[in-house]
Design a protein around this nucleic acid. Structure first.
Length: 749
RNA sequence: GGGUGGUUAGCUCAGUUGGUAGAGCGCUUCGCUUACAUCGAAGAUGUCGGGGGUUCAAGUCCCUCACCACCCACCA
């Protein structure tokens, strides 16, 4: 043995050994256990890997996957029939985003391709990338059964997604509706509420005067979006507002298009804000949309899907809202309709989570899932703790969100995803608006007109997008119902497929894995996707199987630098996990993330000093083994120890190792990884190496070396889930290259 | 506006039912002693955010204030 432990030589070699010995698959490990004459308790234990996005290599956040691996290895060693299910997510919008950036660099855009070609290109890109991610997970030492790898565009996943959708449709959970959605005119797709955020800005607040019909009076409103005045349908005031008491019931005149707007009462209006009067614009504001529905007002849209003004007037149509705003202010000013402008008004605007581009609230027809009934069952399961959250906070948080029972918009206007299996007959729905590419040219228009000039097959071949009216007739089925049908071009929200992860990985509805491993035991994820993913998995799981999909949920924090600052390229504090593995070894990185902070807190700092200290620890372990090996070169050390034979010092260290074993086992059962690992660290370094090893060295007899070796072996076993490579490497050194310690040895008791 | 978490040694953090303050890194001094210098030995460092309370005893329980962070909702 070298005087130094060299992870660069050993780690890759060890991982290959594990793979070729097939120790990660439950079949492989069980077979080998039996052949060794070891029988475990053979109860199933399953860990689900949250599938990483297929569009990029790993970042520091993925280091937290060691938490899952710790559980998988721990349970496997305890004799459970343990399986760690891995996978990769196609990550619809995220991936298309990455791919479009790539196209941009090549001077192209998504509009250059028909839907099918674009999809295929992105898929090729993704398949190339996903093997990188898997390779990196292997370097981290994850003991997942890669033969069971699932990709969320695999045939069985797509089939399951379709089945679920059909079932939901039959059960009445699916509906199409014109609803106010968060539409990104930049990306050309809607976002769920979870995918948007508010950004503080300063914008001018315009005070606009509306004349009252048949009166000399006027009424003023305050708005940051005067360009939407074209879409006004009413003016609302608070019922208790004395200032406007006399005006209620009269009509105001829209200063831009002279439309008559009823002045109504509504409690929503804040007496103290602005002028106390509110313009109602159901087409472009969510609250106005709700008020509009209540009072049965028309919805007028003056911003198109391309982000430009429509249905206004010559000067304004075709402008972007920002430009239109200035122009409208000018028009109002000239008409004596602009009272004043507060230039420095602080407000917040809705933007997308990705790039912070503005979100336009627009009324669009989308596919939705009704969540009330589905969530009721989830709420029940969470309250009854059929699924347990590691911290009570999370239970509270998820219940709060579930109780809102918001409808889930599941359609996305992007190509990269699972297409919604809905078909529209072009005969029954002449108002379908289609966009398609033919001979490099983009054509768009209503199908009733288009089909006069283009053959349906040409339209289908070059199809980019269809927009079907809200009342369109459709059929839900996988195969095309006939020649005259066009398929919905919207795809499912990526969470609609990854939400069924526990089912698709285990092979629901009937497979050996599903029967054995479902409901799964342990799920670790970051808390930021609690609503996106965890809540939806619970929803699908209970809906499809009547059981919670997993029994225990652990949330880890966002990995930050050691000062708790989020890593970002611009701050220059990004840590590449692979570089850390290269320099210090995977074991050290694994141990470093576990002990560097609280993994169950909202933020987990990655402290390189901690990583370094466990690199040193690896070397310490290596040298203890070396010491034992050197002794064994001249003396055979028999296995096992007999306490009766020994002096007090031996009995002490043996007793302490028993206590350690109990402590570590208990902490692992309670997911308190840091406490467990630090306890082993100090036992091995302070007690075993610094104290006992010195005693054994002085005694220089077989009996004390027996004790040293046995206790060291116990320590290695306890340490294995945390630091699998170095413990396995040492195991091999001590036992002359035999089977993996994962198989040969059982968790100490 | 509603809610949650945090504030302990220079830095990052432990401290599980209240019982004389801990770890890693860093720092000081000494030591290349044949397992290990990725080491060993010895050592310094804290009014445990402020204030009040309960208790024989509080970092640990209660109240209050301050600051930091995050989540949710959303302002025309």
């Amino acid at each position: 043995m070298d005087t130094k432990y060299d992870h660069t030589k050993i780690e890759k070699q060890i991982y290959k050994k594990w793979e070729s010995a097939d120790v990660f698959s439950p079949e492989g490990s069980t077979k080998q256990r039996v052949s060794q004459g070891i029988t475990g308790n053979e109860k199933p234990y399953s860990v689900l890997m949250p599938p990483p996005n297929a569009n990029a290599s790993l970042h520091c956040g993925h280091v937290t996957y060691v938490i899952q691996d710790i559980m998988a290895r721990f349970k496997r060693m305890q004799g459970f029939d343990s399986c760690y299910f891995p996978g990769i997510d196609h990550a619809g919008f995220e991936t298309q985003y990455v791919y479009e950036n790539k196209l941009k660099k090549e001077g192209k855009s998504r509009f250059d391709f028909d839907r099918e070609t674009l999809y295929k290109n992105i898929l090729d890109f993704v398949l190339e990338n996903s093997s990188i991610a898997i390779g990196q997970f292997k370097r981290l030492g994850l003991s997942a059964d890669w033969n069971r790898n699932t990709f969320t565009l695999d045939k069985n996943v797509v089939e399951q997604v379709y089945k679920t959708f059909e079932k939901m449709n039959n059960d009445g959970y699916v509906y199409r509706e014109g609803y106010m959605v968060n539409y990104s005119t930049y990306y050309g797709t809607t976002f769920s509420d979870l995918e948007t955020e508010y950004k503080d800005t300063v914008s001018p607040l315009y005070f606009v005067k509306y004349k009252i019909k048949n009166s000399d009076k006027t009424i003023s409103i305050a708005t940051v979006r005067p360009e939407t005045i074209y879409a006004d349908v009413a003016i609302a005031v608070n019922p208790d507002d004395k200032r406007y008491k006399d005006l209620v019931g009269l009509f105001a005149i829209n200063p831009l298009n002279s439309r008559e707007l009823p002045i109504i009462k509504d409690e929503y209006v804040d007496l103290n804000f602005g002028t106390g009067a509110l313009k109602i614009t159901p087409g472009h504001d969510l609250n106005d949309f709700k008020i509009g529905k209540k009072h049965n007002f028309e919805v007028i849209s003056v911003i198109g899907l391309d982000g430009k003004m429509i249905n206004t007037e010559k000067e304004i149509d075709g402008l972007y809202p920002k430009q239109a705003r200035l122009k409208v202010a000018e028009i109002l000013k000239n008409n004596n309709g602009l009272e004043k402008v507060n230039e420095k008004y602080e407000n917040r605007v809705l933007v997308d989570y990705k790039d912070g581009y503005p979100i336009e609230p627009l009324v669009m027809t989308n596919w939705f899932i009704k969540t009330e009934k589905l969530f009721d069952k989830v709420i029940n399961s969470v309250e009854n703790e059929e699924v347990k959250f590691y911290k009570p906070v999370w239970k509270k948080e998820i219940l709060r969100w579930l109780n809102e029972k918001r409808p889930w918009p599941i359609s996305r206007q992007i190509a990269f995803g699972i297409a919604i299996p809905a078909w529209y007959s072009i005969k029954e729905n002449p108002e379908i608006f289609v966009t398609f590419v033919v001979d490099g040219k983009t054509i768009s228009g209503y199908i009733k007109d288009i089909k006069k000039n283009y053959d349906i097959e040409i339209i289908k071949k070059g199809l980019q997008k269809i927009v079907a009216p809200e009342n369109a007739k459709f059929k839900i089925q996988v195969e095309s119902p006939g020649e005259d049908y066009l398929q919905e071009t919207d795809t499912f929200d990526t969470w609609f497929s990854s939400g069924q992860w526990p089912q698709v990985t285990t092979g629901f509805p009937n497979s050996a894995d599903y029967n054995k491993y479902y409901p799964t035991n342990f799920l670790d994820s970051m808390w930021d996707i609690m609503f996106f993913w965890i809540a939806r998995m619970l929803m699908f799981g209970i809906y499809l199987t009547d059981k919670v999909p997993f029994k225990n949920v652990y949330f880890h924090g966002a990995v930050t630098d050691k000062h708790g600052v989020k890593m970002s390229k611009s701050k220059g504090n990004v840590i590449n996990p692979i570089e850390i593995i290269d320099e210090y070894g995977a074991d050290s990185l694994r141990a470093g993330i576990i002990t560097g902070g609280d993994t169950s807190a909202k933020f987990t700092p990655l402290d390189i000093d901690k990583v370094k200290s466990y690199r040193n620890f690896s070397n310490k372990l290596w040298n203890i083994a070396r010491f034992i090996n050197m002794y064994e070169e001249t003396n055979q050390i028999p296995n096992g120890i007999d306490l009766k034979e020994y002096e007090k010092i031996e009995i002490n260290i043996v007793e302490e190792s028993v206590l350690l074993t109990k402590f570590v086992t208990k902490k692992l059962e309670k997911y308190q990884y840091k406490l467990a690992l630090e306890e082993i660290y100090h036992f091995v370094w302070d007690k075993l190496a610094n104290e006992y090893l010195e005693i054994a060295k002085n005694k220089n007899d077989i009996d004390s070396m027996r004790v040293l070796k046995e206790i060291f072996k116990t320590s290695l076993k306890l340490l294995h889930p945390f630091m699998p490579f170095v413990t396995e490497a040492i195991w091999q050194e001590l036992h002359g290259n035999k089977n993996s310690m994962l198989i040969v040895e059982k968790w100490p008791e």
